[in-house]
Amino acid sequence: MAETAGAHGAGSQGGDHGDEATRRDFLYLTAGAFTVIGGAVAIWPFINSMNPSADVLAAGGPVDVDLTPLEEGQAITVMWRGEPMFVRYRTQAEIEAARETPLDDLIDPQTDEERVKPGHEQYLVVRGICTHLGCVPLGQRQGDERGEYGGWYCPCHGSHYDTSGRIRRGPAPMNLIVPPYTFADDKTVVIGEEGEAAA
């Protein structure tokens, strides 16, 4: 490229540079590079405008959940960031079942202790979105199908979750995600705010 540009540009560039890069080569390259950079900079606002806006981000702030009406064995669903969050008050048997499961049996190995807050082991808080393709699993309401492991069952493609929200069978690749949350007091959980380290 330098050769042809040098040969053709010789007349107007004042002198034959042979294989040397000419001023014209330099101008082509710098102009070309700045056109590309300028184009990329100009496109960015268009792309970035499609990212979550300030009001959407603000509406995604933390929510307080009052756990007083919740009794052992029951579960409630609250909305955070447009998605259902499952809060389940687990029975002693459910907690034991989750804790006695060997990690080797798990698709996405995680202990039950890693998925709850110390001192609040009876409450399991997970994002109620199947990690396969985003359906809402069944198991929150009385009489719902809870799958083979007593947790949740996703009706879309048949994923079974256990009483710790861990994936046990089916196409989902991961456990139900534990959202950031903290306990304001024994009966109030704040979803969307990370407190003392767990998870």
Partner: peptide, 17 residues
Amino acid sequence: TTWLWGGFTVDNPTLNR
């Protein structure tokens, strides 16, 4: 996916685009 949705899930921004 967040960029496609314009939020944290399929919602109004998604419908608009």
